[in-house]
Design a protein around this nucleic acid. Sequence first.
DNA 1: CTGAAAGCGCTAACAT
DNA 2: ATGTTAGCGCTTTCAG
Lengths: 336, 336
Amino acid sequence: MVTQMDVARLAGVGRRTVSNVVIGFPHVSEEARARVLHAIDELGYVPNRAAQRLRTGRSGVIALTVPEVGVGYFGELANLIIEEAALRGLGTIIAQTHGSRERELTEIERLLALQPDGLVASPLGLTLDDIETFSARTSVALIGEHFLDETVSTIAIDNSRAAAEITTHLIDSGSRRIAFIGGPADAEHQPHFNELRRSGCRSVLAAHGLDPVIDVCLEDYTAEAGFRAGITLAERDVDAVFCVTDEVAIGVIRALHDAGRRVPDDIRVAGFDDIPEGRFSTPRLTTASPDKIEIARRAVAATLGEQASTDPVPHTLIVRESTSRPAASSTPRPRG
Amino acid sequence: MVTQMDVARLAGVGRRTVSNVVIGFPHVSEEARARVLHAIDELGYVPNRAAQRLRTGRSGVIALTVPEVGVGYFGELANLIIEEAALRGLGTIIAQTHGSRERELTEIERLLALQPDGLVASPLGLTLDDIETFSARTSVALIGEHFLDETVSTIAIDNSRAAAEITTHLIDSGSRRIAFIGGPADAEHQPHFNELRRSGCRSVLAAHGLDPVIDVCLEDYTAEAGFRAGITLAERDVDAVFCVTDEVAIGVIRALHDAGRRVPDDIRVAGFDDIPEGRFSTPRLTTASPDKIEIARRAVAATLGEQASTDPVPHTLIVRESTSRPAASSTPRPRG
DNA sequence: CTGAAAGCGCTAACAT
DNA sequence: ATGTTAGCGCTTTCAG
């Protein structure tokens, strides 16, 4: 292995100068810099990260936990966080928690053992105590509402408001018999996005003198769970369904379709998150779209200890086929 | 920061003994081990990874590149590789290449600068030379066919055979006017999965005295690209489409649907990869399903320098609605 | 079975 | 602007 010392020798300078050049320290004469650069090239020198890290105490890596990479909302978010970290020259090391507190605990523990510079987490099951324990050990950025004191940065959209907007859209479209399909009930007085979306929906319904026809608690946020809920739903007299996530909505739509209920003709369906699948699904999915790039940016910044805005991240309501009649050009040819 | 020395002092043993206990070296007296363990607990000692790494030369981290985490086949695969690495106590650090050679080069470079213990890559644009350059620097495992000599492990299913099976299924179902939708043409005499799937398809067609009605080269493997191809396809007289990936198939189906062509009634559509979305899409997608768990297992093993099987990874043909009439229970209620 | 001590390659405080 | 040097915390060779 070729070390800094070798480079220094070949370039005819001190080790310090080599270090300066590598790090980008400004006060190096042009001539020395050129000689060092040339020697580095000649020798194929690569700085040893382990030594750098030992010395500086920084690893150049952040840790990220998501319920599941490669699926739905958190998959896309992982995407963007990796990208954002890369932009800052940081590596991202990922673990998957599958949304259970137990896995979250063990996976975060595993990640922390690798001693990253920070942790971005999107916990579903962790308690406030858990989170505070971790945040005592590293700088932590949390995605989603968590209502901690200022020690931990929390990055989220205004879920309640977005849910209200979707519900209003459903009512404006003429729906009155509206169902809400939510995730597992949130833990001990700690409302997550799930509860916020539910309450955002219910409050608008209430304002119109309505009540959810059905209000389901799924055991998780998968299309599979949505599918099972959809089977039951198909037999009920509802004209719109607000699903807590797009993934759930996709499962629900699939079940409705199997049962011969047409979306949006018989039942309107709205999701939440704006996942890529919703843009090519049949029908295309109406949804609330969080500004994910902004979320990623804030998460990485917060992890690095930078002070960022605590305002809710912006979102947009995206109306597509699943809650409205398809455009003329997209009308399926009549059957038979 | 609490060091090994502190633990040694508190436990009343030498540093060496602490190290032995931490590492799991067997020859330590029960009594000493107990005292050390107790001291570790007392002090909250955590071994410093950077120092460990500097000393041993191993980082406990592998690098992984995928075109895009959070999307389609490689998203799910990333999933499984992370899982498999975690099982062996390794962290996984990810980069996204978006399938272009340029990004692949820079991202792999970035990853290698972090000095991982190995690299799992699924390159789409790299040349054989590129790959050989990298494999000289770390142990590399490649996902997908690449036809290198034995220096680099290559993990793939028998794409050609799987494509032949799908095509046979299409023909057996009664299709004769079959289109193939492929990805970008492969580089310089280096057939990838794309070319293998195409040739697997064509050879079965030829054996039946058929030729593809259309044979498209998309610019990438997105649903968006498939959607655009599907628009053109809808106007042609075809009765089946074999898409090089499920993602492309989802785009194609969406376009056919918009144009009023029913799948599978008017046109059968098959994909490849068995991505999760295909299980809840409308219609559900017929596809070739690689044994992804086996791929992940072999990839991690190869990266760690273990000698693994070089046989093709197994795959299964999965027939769903998109190439067959829906089951009675799934028949949509007739319209109007 | 355990202790002492030599670095791994690098950065940064100090000196020039 | 550059050279000198002292560790960062750990593993491991060498003695005991």
